[in-house]
Computed example of a mutant assay.
Amino acid sequence: MRNVIAYVNLTLDGHLAGPAGELDWMRFDPEMNIALSDEMRSRCDTILTGRNFHHGIEQNFRAQANDPASPAELADFATWMISAPQVVFSRSLTEVAAPHRLAGDDLAATVAELKALPGKDMVLFGGVSIVQQFVREGLVDEYWIKLYPTAIGAGQPLFTHRRTELRLTESKAWESGILTLRYLPA
């Protein structure tokens, strides 16, 4: 059975984004990004995302994939991001281009159906509201967290509903000060 991996960027005080969606606290770490993207692509073959992130993938990664000045690692990752099948969770979209598909209205039923299909694991990128909903409904099998050494004081938290116990399975400190953490539900 396939797993859902929530791959998130998180502030030290637990926010996925600032109050208005700000991500200006994130910093670039090329060594970390290459290592994590290679591992993620070897484990996952499907992207789970909300409408805004789906549109962002197309806008941001297509340019990087086609830019001859892009480093090879970034171009490879960008190509994977735009070509990997996406399951888009949206109440407002009525269609998406193949190989992508719209999710059904029942989140838990859609995830159960996807998990039963053949293939590799699935990576949940965002946006914030769909990640929070997956977490609230207990649909995340593994958390891959990039913890940035920045507290922003207020914002959009990862955990919004109740106490959640997790079990640390891996951690690594990067030269940039970012920690990568892997957790399983306890």
Rank of each mutant, 00 (worst) to 15 (best):
69 A>E: 15
142 E>K: 10
175 E>M: 04
167 R>L: 09
88 V>K: 05
12 L>Q: 12
156 Q>L: 14
185 P>C: 03
185 P>K: 12
68 P>H: 08
175 E>S: 13
35 A>Y: 04
44 C>K: 10
8 V>R: 03
178 I>M: 08
136 R>W: 03
43 R>E: 13
69 A>I: 00
176 S>Y: 07
168 L>Y: 01
133 Q>C: 00
163 R>N: 08
41 R>A: 11
130 I>S: 03
77 F>I: 00
29 D>P: 02
71 P>N: 07
56 G>S: 12
185 P>L: 10
150 T>K: 12
7 Y>T: 13
119 G>D: 07
53 F>Q: 11
54 H>F: 15
98 A>V: 11
180 T>G: 01
185 P>A: 02
51 R>S: 10
95 E>G: 01
102 L>M: 12
38 D>K: 14
166 L>S: 05
97 A>I: 04
164 T>K: 06
18 G>M: 10
82 I>D: 07
48 L>D: 09
152 I>K: 03
16 L>V: 05
19 P>C: 03
162 R>S: 14
127 G>Q: 08
140 V>H: 02
65 A>I: 14
68 P>I: 08
96 V>F: 02
69 A>M: 11
9 N>G: 08
162 R>K: 14
52 N>T: 15
1 M>D: 12
168 L>K: 12
99 P>F: 06
97 A>W: 00
97 A>R: 14
59 Q>A: 14
173 A>K: 09
40 M>S: 13
58 E>Y: 06
35 A>E: 15
79 T>G: 15
134 F>P: 05
18 G>A: 10
97 A>G: 00
180 T>W: 02
103 A>P: 10
133 Q>P: 00
144 W>D: 04
37 S>L: 04
95 E>T: 03
99 P>L: 09
10 L>R: 06
163 R>W: 05
185 P>N: 08
93 L>V: 10
82 I>F: 03
79 T>M: 09
147 L>A: 06
36 L>D: 09
3 N>D: 14
10 L>K: 03
47 I>C: 03
45 D>P: 06
54 H>W: 12
130 I>Q: 04
7 Y>F: 15
19 P>K: 10
123 V>A: 13
159 F>I: 15
179 L>W: 09
86 Q>E: 02
27 R>P: 00
113 E>A: 15
72 A>I: 07
113 E>W: 01
5 I>Y: 09
41 R>H: 11
104 G>C: 07
48 L>F: 06
145 I>E: 02
99 P>V: 04
147 L>D: 05
19 P>D: 01
65 A>T: 12
180 T>S: 07
14 G>H: 08
154 A>C: 00
35 A>N: 05
42 S>C: 01
170 E>L: 05
172 K>N: 01
46 T>A: 03
163 R>E: 14
131 V>G: 01
4 V>D: 06
95 E>Q: 14
82 I>L: 04
186 A>V: 12
66 N>E: 15
68 P>F: 05
53 F>E: 06
119 G>Q: 05
115 K>W: 10
150 T>R: 11
20 A>P: 00
93 L>M: 14
138 G>F: 03
183 Y>P: 12
186 A>T: 11
127 G>S: 14
95 E>W: 01
53 F>W: 13
183 Y>V: 11
67 D>M: 06
162 R>G: 13
107 L>R: 08
159 F>V: 15
45 D>A: 04
105 D>Y: 01
43 R>P: 02
32 M>Y: 01
148 Y>W: 11
151 A>F: 05
13 D>W: 07
62 R>A: 13
138 G>H: 09
111 V>F: 01
81 M>R: 13
5 I>G: 02
9 N>C: 10
